[in-house]
């Protein structure tokens, strides 16, 4: 059961995290060496007066404290939060830029997280049940290998294999930009989008399912040794039901926590993956924004991501109570 006291404490906790994140989001882009107007001035060979005018227009000539106060009040008090105007997508407001790219990332992440968790759990359960067999050795070996392989390396291998040697999947973009559809709810459009998502999703899945497999396998092995599993067998419960209803159901509990904790990591991976596949998500956006020192966009990106992760963690904690009856808050 959840007590009201716990909910209040947990909510307060989330707000503290939110506040800390707000401050960091302001600080981090400003810690990148150089400054946006210097970058623009040098790359476009602008005269000094123009650079000064840009500084003034973006408010970068004001003291940091003034900038900070302005930033905080614009973000907290306005909806949608106002991060100002993008430097590189001038004159589009940041919120508009981020929300244009965001749906693609959400699509990519949802698809890859679900596939990752499902595949990871399945292989973990399988290798625990087939303990001591060649299946387990194979699954464990491959998992350990993949666990220590970086995202982008797998992405490059996939491009080589499925984009070059066996050109099955498109290697860049989120859809075929040369064809224009009247409505997005068409089968050929959906297939096109899925085909474009195939390689990015595969590289995210391949590089991250192993952590689920390994944790699930370990939990499964110890759960299968519990007395209540023997009881279930003695009752005549079918093997499939023993594996899923009695063992996996219990072994899965810590994996739920892992799923949520990994959201942040997967996002990090998504940035690199999107960059490799020129996928039009917020990852590519951030990548370019950092290169261009586009402070407002960097802030907008981190803000949206942070809020998403905080909310996910918040609900995961509350959800846990319903999954494990022993947990009491």
């Amino acid at each position: 059961m959840i007590s009201a006291r716990y909910i209040i404490r947990r909510t307060a906790n989330s707000f503290v995290t939110y506040a800390a994140a707000l401050a960091l989001i302001f600080a981090i882009p400003r810690l990148i060496p150089g400054s946006p107007e210097e970058l623009m001035a040098s790359s476009y060979r602008l005269p000094g007066e123009v650079a000064a005018e840009l500084r003034h227009r973006f408010g970068l000539d004001q003291p940091l404290t003034t900038q900070f106060v302005k930033y905080i009040s614009n973000v907290i008090l306005k909806f949608p939060p106002d991060f100002g105007i993008s430097y590189s997508y001038y004159p589009a407001p940041v919120w508009q830029v981020v929300t244009t790219y965001l749906p693609w990332t959400i699509f990519l992440l949802t698809l890859s997280s679900v596939v990752t968790a499902a595949l990871g759990l399945l292989l973990g359960v399988l290798s625990a049940w087939k303990r001591g067999s060649i299946v387990e050795t194979l699954v464990s070996g491959v998992s350990m290998f993949l666990l220590s392989t970086p995202y982008f390396w797998i992405a490059m291998i996939l491009i080589m294999v499925f984009g070059v040697y066996l050109p099955i999947f498109p290697v860049a973009g989120a859809y075929t930009s040369t064809v224009i559809y009247d409505t997005p709810f068409r089968l050929d459009y959906i297939c096109d989008v899925l085909a474009h998502a195939a390689l990015p999703v595969m590289s995210l899945v391949i590089s991250s399912f192993a952590s689920y497999t390994i944790i699930m396998r370990d939990n499964m092995v110890s759960t299968l040794g519990e007395d209540y599993i023997t009881t279930a067998m003695a009752k005549g419960v079918k093997t499939r039901s023993i594996i899923w209803r009695h063992a996996a159901r219990n072994a899965m509990l810590p994996v739920v926590t892992l799923f949520i904790l990994r959201l942040g990591t997967i996002l990090g991976g998504a940035i690199v993956t999107e960059a490799v596949f020129s996928y039009p998500g917020v990852g590519s956006l951030l990548f370019n924004a950092i290169l261009n020192q586009d402070y407002p966009v960097v802030q907008g990106f981190f803000y949206v991501i942070t809020v998403m992760v905080i909310i996910a963690n918040y609900f995961a904690d509350l959800l846990y109570v319903f999954m494990d009856p022993r947990v009491k808050y």
Binding site: D227, Y228, K235, G236
Partner: peptide, 18 residues
């Protein structure tokens, strides 16, 4: 269970906690 059933050693652990 239909013909032969059993009460196991660990009173605490022979029921599934979830």
């Amino acid at each position: 269970w239909k013909k032969v059933s059993m009460v196991f050693q660990g009173a605490m652990n022979s029921l599934n906690p979830v």
